[in-house]
C-alpha cells in the first residue's frame, strides 16, 4: 500500500515542487502561492483519509523527486564541464 502510494505521489510531488520553485520565477507572488496551495490540497485530503501512514510515502516521494532533479541538473553541469558529453569534433 505504502509503495503504491509512494508511486502515485511521485508525479504529484513533481507538480507540488514545481509550484514551490515557481516562487523563484518572479511574477505575482500571491497568484503563485494560491497555485501552490491548490496543489497541496490533494495531499491534505490524502493525509486526512490515510492519517500518518501517508506522511512517509509523501516525504519519500518529495525527497526522491528533489534528489533526482538536483542530481540531474548539477550532474549535467558537472559532466559538461568535464567534457563527458563531448561529441566528436569535425570540420
Amino acid at each position: 500500500m505504502s509503495l503504491l502510494l509512494y508511486l502515485v505521489l511521485l508525479p504529484l510531488s513533481v507538480w507540488i515542487l514545481a509550484g514551490a520553485f515557481a516562487l523563484l520565477d518572479g511574477g505575482s507572488r500571491s497568484a503563485t502561492l494560491r497555485r501552490l496551495a491548490s496543489r497541496l490540497l490533494p495531499v491534505v485530503i490524502l493525509a486526512w483519509f490515510l492519517g500518518t501512514g501517508a506522511i512517509l510515502p509523501l516525504a519519500g516521494a518529495l525527497v526522491t523527486v528533489l534528489t533526482i532533479h538536483t542530481v540531474a541538473l548539477t550532474g549535467t553541469r558537472w559532466a559538461l564541464e568535464r567534457g563527458l558529453f563531448r561529441g566528436r569534433f569535425e570540420v
Binding site: L10, P11, V14, W15, L17, A18, G19, F21, A22, D25, G26, G27, R35, T64, V65, I68, H69, A72
Partner: peptide, 24 residues
C-alpha cells in the same frame, strides 16, 4: 518517467511565466 522526474519541475515551471521574467 525518469525524464519527467528529472526535468518535470522545470517543465511545469515554464507553464506560467511572464514575458518580463526573461529580463533576468
Amino acid at each position: 518517467v525518469l525524464a519527467y522526474l528529472a526535468v518535470g519541475i522545470s517543465w511545469h515551471r515554464t507553464a506560467r511565466l511572464s514575458p518580463q521574467s526573461f529580463e533576468a
